[in-house]
Nucleic acid binder design. Structure first.
Lengths: 228, 228
DNA sequence: TAAAAAAGTTAGCCATGACTAACAAATCAA
DNA sequence: TTGATTTGTTAGTCATGGCTAACTTTTTTA
């Protein structure tokens, strides 16, 4: 009963900033997240970011000293986690029930995550029987706001001879996702590293009777669990 | 191929105005819809309406002469129908799959109808196996934008001894909808008019072994098909 | 038909959240 | 350590979409 209202009266923009900040802070667990970094992530000018951060500080969602690093309050963090929960649940719905492909879900979920209704999202969760992971392999926070990160290592961190399992992919780029599914990689695919080329760090991998060569950049966006 | 783009780049506000205008023009099939009427319907000031109408005229969605009545162009009408299609499909989804009640669906659908994605709405339609009517009994326009109105007569227009079937209800007021379901009325219920009281036009009706007296205002918001 | 009422319009203001340009502070590197 | 570069801040502008107050046109009605 200490919360004044938990009324969720945030604008779409405020929500976007809080979510972005959370993603920079927690998912990339950076030591310092600065104003310009946030601006670049959101593709807005540093002036806009500065402005919004000022506003979010007066609302007690963000804490920072002048010229210092940005941090979220507990309340700010809670809002961000709720948005991520909504995003991932909608992605799951689109993928599992509405024939959306891997690379199509993100943009629509980005809109749907701003719909305000507690009942909507909890019922959607129940309807899908409380899924654990979204289509890209990321864990979905539960309705209590518990957020877990799967300990992730990238495909690019492995060496010749290693065997791993695909557990999630970075859903930032449509072209990347399209390529992943085009070559036939899917969640849980077992991948063997055949060769890491010194020259350009490209990697030859084998999976499902297929052999492919992928770039370092590609391998940086594929998260795996090491098996051997 | 004559459409320059059909790109659907409208703001939420622009969409709200077009939909409201359509509802005043078509559903209440008024002879004249004026600026102040639209303002009152949307609960904004006449100045705001005037401003937005000006904008919608330059975009060729609305036509009107100075001090004259408001009308929609074909394109404006098409946008409005798409919004109504989206609204009703979402209401149906919320009601049939997510345990929402009659009076809860409207507000959330009001938000969901602004989500921009052709695939989303057509897949949702397919997922639900192309429903014909929304939970309040209104026809859902199909993906080609065909809009039909069920010829409606109100319960209040009937006389003693008449028998009718409930085909739809006005979903404008939460309290009204809550009352309808509380007394046990549902779509397709057969209703017999027992008595119309001269004094205040209240009506005694019988349905499902229940007898209720309802006010004239209530009866104005209940749409029926006359059986006898 | 002329005055009153209603309906429509205009001007000017506000908040939000973008932007650019200019400036200040902090950090890096020679 | 000091100058250059990067990072952060401020001031001032713009578009959107609200608002009120004042005004004009149209319609009603006495």
């Amino acid at each position: 009963m200490t919360n004044k209202s938990n009324s969720n009266n945030l604008t779409k923009s405020e929500e976007d900033y809080l979510k972005a900040l959370f993603q920079l802070l927690v998912e990339d667990n950076s030591v310092k997240v600065g104003n310009n970094q946030l601006a670049e992530y959101l593709k807005v000018s540093p002036a806009s970011t500065n402005n919004m951060i000022k506003k979010l500080k007066t609302k007690d969602y963000v804490v920072s000293e002048k010229y210092g690093k940005l941090e979220l309050t507990e309340e700010g963090r809670a809002i961000a986690v709720k948005l991520i929960r909504k995003h991932r649940l909608w992605e799951t719905f689109l993928y599992n029930y509405l024939n959306f492909s891997w690379d199509e879900v993100h943009d629509v979920a980005e809109q749907l995550e701003h719909i305000k209704s507690y009942k909507l999202i909890d019922e959607l969760d129940r309807f899908m029987d409380f899924p654990e992971k979204d289509p890209h392999g990321e864990l979905i926070p539960n309705s209590k706001g518990e957020y877990k990160v799967v300990p992730k290592i990238t495909l690019s961190s492995l060496e010749e001879g290693d065997v791993c399992k695909l557990i999630s992919v970075n859903d930032g780029s449509v072209n990347f996702l399209r390529f992943v599914s085009e070559i036939g990689l899917a969640l849980s695919s077992e991948i063997k590293i055949l060769e890491v080329r010194e020259f350009d760090k490209s990697i030859r991998i084998a999976f499902n009777d297929t052999i492919e060569t992928v770039t370092r950049k590609f391998a940086d966006n594929v998260f795996v669990e090491k098996l051997i």
